[in-house]
Design a protein around this nucleic acid. Structure first.
Lengths: 209, 209
DNA sequence: TAAACATAGTGAATTTTTTACCAAAGGAGT
DNA sequence: ACTCCTTTGGTAAAAAATTCACTATGTTTA
């Protein structure tokens, strides 16, 4: 029942507006104009209105947007009114950091399991989560109804782990391994390539010099 | 002396082609067509050729690209033939993970210093790097000729740290704090919002359902 | 050496995304 | 209740990015 294709960039911006609106709410601000949102996040006000217009009419002409109300709409739009269950595969430094990262625990995201193949790591605790053997992947995914798999294993193992996650039934994958992953069309995949970010900086530093 | 504006997306893709070409080189493959590169990273072959065309003609018609030669060109284009010095501010889980991340140490990137304000962390070692007090920021930036600052402090401190980095003379900032940062126009800024990635997945999981 | 084939490079067409603009709508002041 | 002011929502225009389709140019084979 998809109606419009929403640009990826729009979704990313919405999540930034969402963050910003929280600051406003915490500061006790009740209404805000698209211009003010725009200034605070560094885009144009037309952009803000256009992004929101994909989903409905949330503002009041002459006034702007009621912060709390708009937050409610964005929560729904971004699907943050639902509960998402997560497994992290790979308990190296990065995987552990993500497991402990507070930003991952807000907004309905629950990390249900952290798996690794390294004997030495298994049994260790990350806050309230115990690192478990990767053999339990399928069982944990099923038990907890896990929707999202986060892949933080070495590049060589990334595809194999991904295949198992997909097979086990996750719907989305967030990949931190520097590898292009193959997934079926109905699986949502996002890649975070940390070293690519540095390379982009390097490019920008070198270019026009 | 900038001539063309290169789309951000192009630069990101170039760094992925770069990665892929390394796999090919390691596998002993000597030439590759735009079609093959395209298939392996999931874009169109025209896209690959367009991306490269911004910078010159690197292929041979009827044959394709010589892997090693193209790698050489991409190394130059991405500025990876230069040495980049990095400071990480914030030695929490994420900062530490990045400091230890091998992907950050390849390709001419050197992590010269890791700073934190937490007494308890100062003095601890991350491989060969000792965590030092954030007071040394300016001194370390100057001593090592640091170009890039990585910000992994809590959101509330991110702007202050950024200002100090800019003041001290870094040219680029990679920001992991969930905050919009203000920097002068000549400073290159990239944001990695980990929790935004999860929100985008959440959106995609909810939408069309 | 010529013909057949493969594939890069590129201008044009298309699609997508962003920006600009303005009419409509609500609120505040008189 | 009317006028003025502000700001949205929508439409049109512009810009940017991607894809298409064709040309040019190498390589290989007969």
């Amino acid at each position: 029942m998809k109606v419009f294709k929403i640009p990826e960039a729009t979704v990313v911006r919405l999540s930034i507006y969402f963050r910003q609106l929280h600051y406003l709410k915490d500061a006790g601000i009740e209404t805000v104009s698209s211009e003010e949102i725009a200034n605070s996040v560094g885009v144009s006000s037309a952009q803000v209105r256009k992004d929101l217009a994909y989903f409905g009419e949330f503002g009041t002409r002459g006034v702007g947007y009621r912060v709390e109300e708009l937050l409610g709409y964005l929560t729904k739009i971004l699907g943050l009114d639902q509960k998402w269950n997560i497994v992290i595969v790979g308990a190296g430094k990065l995987g552990s950091a993500l497991a402990l990262y507070q930003g991952f625990r807000e907004w309905g995201f629950t990390i249900n399991a952290v798996l690794d193949s390294d004997e030495a790591k298994i049994g260790q605790s990350l806050d309230d989560i115990k690192i478990e053997p990767v053999e339990l992947l399928e069982r944990r995914v099923n038990e907890h109804g896990i929707n999202i798999g986060i892949v933080t294993v070495p590049a060589v193992n990334a595809q194999e782990v991904t295949d198992r996650l997909v097979q086990a039934g996750v719907s989305a994958i967030l990949n931190f391994a520097p590898r292009v992953l193959r997934v079926p069309n109905d699986i949502i995949l996002r890649n975070v390539d940390l070293s690519a970010n540095l390379k982009v900086l390097s490019f920008n530093l070198s270019y026009n010099k």
